Simulated scan of single mutants.
Amino acid sequence: MASYVITGASRGLGLELTRQLSARSEVGKIFATARGDSPKLQELAKASSGRIVVIKLDVSDEAAVKKAAAEVEIGLAGKGLDVLINNAGIRQFSQKGTSSMENLQESFTTNVLGVHWVTRAFIPLLQKGNQKKIANISSTVGSITYARLVQPIPAPAYKITKTAVNALTVQYALDYENEGFTIFALSPGWLRTDLGGEQADLSVEDGAEATLVKILSSTKEQNGQFLNIKAEGWGEKYDGSNAPW
């Protein structure tokens, strides 16, 4: 059975991905990481008969990332890791625009360096796994093609860092394609979470389900690509075709 690591699993998409994966018979261990305490995640883990293991991890702290990877290695008991889902991230607002934003460094540390540090730390475990998949949760607001369309959204640091995550994804995909890895960026859609807000398009349950469909069905042909979910009734917005860079 496949093993998973999910970062940012304390709430929102990460928590729902953990919940839905734990209901699948083909899934073995799920290492759900969270920066702080999460009663909902702990409750989910207690009801999982040991399938969900909660790991403390702040992705913006490289030392904490290394410690978490060591804990996961112990939990795998000599086996490899199959799938890494880099989901942890922050979205900060800057009402005065790009030139005045003071949060780019913090956003970059969490959203880009965090993905890099986590990926680098878990690559050795993935190399011993069967599936060798890495899904980096991104967003179409980071698409340069869509820059003018999403310009009114007052979160320039978030947009910039998601663009950077996409570029980072491609570099890792090229570096590890000869080892059989499938590494891709994935937009889960605009979801009704604490980050997405109540006005968002999709429920977190529907977004997580569509996200898992993409992750579970991905093959080496998707290596280095920017995937988008498929959701009925949304036309081209969520038609399952690749998102533009």
Rank of each mutant, 00 (worst) to 15 (best):
M1V: 14
A2E: 14
A9S: 07
L15Q: 03
R19C: 10
R19K: 15
L21F: 12
S22P: 12
F31M: 06
A32M: 05
A32D: 01
R35K: 11
G36R: 11
G36E: 11
D37H: 13
P39E: 06
A45P: 05
K46T: 13
V54S: 08
I55F: 04
D58W: 03
S60Q: 05
S60V: 05
D61C: 00
D61N: 14
V65W: 00
A68C: 09
A68I: 09
A69G: 08
I74N: 15
A77S: 15
K79I: 00
L81K: 12
D82G: 03
D82L: 08
L84R: 03
S100D: 11
M101K: 11
Q105L: 15
Q105V: 14
S107K: 05
G114V: 00
G114I: 04
V115Y: 15
W117G: 01
V118H: 05
T119V: 06
T119L: 02
G129N: 04
Q131E: 15
K133E: 11
A147D: 08
L149D: 09
P154V: 00
P156F: 04
K159G: 06
K159Y: 10
K159Q: 03
A164K: 01
A164C: 08
V165H: 04
N166E: 09
L168K: 05
T169Y: 09
T169H: 03
Q171G: 13
D175G: 05
E177H: 14
I183A: 03
I183Q: 06
I183Y: 02
F184K: 01
G189I: 07
G189A: 05
L191W: 08
D194H: 06
L195S: 06
G197S: 01
E198K: 13
A210V: 06
V213N: 13
L216I: 15
L216P: 07
Q222C: 12
Q222M: 13
L227K: 09
L227Y: 04
N228L: 12
E232A: 14
E232H: 12
E232W: 10
G235I: 10
P244V: 13
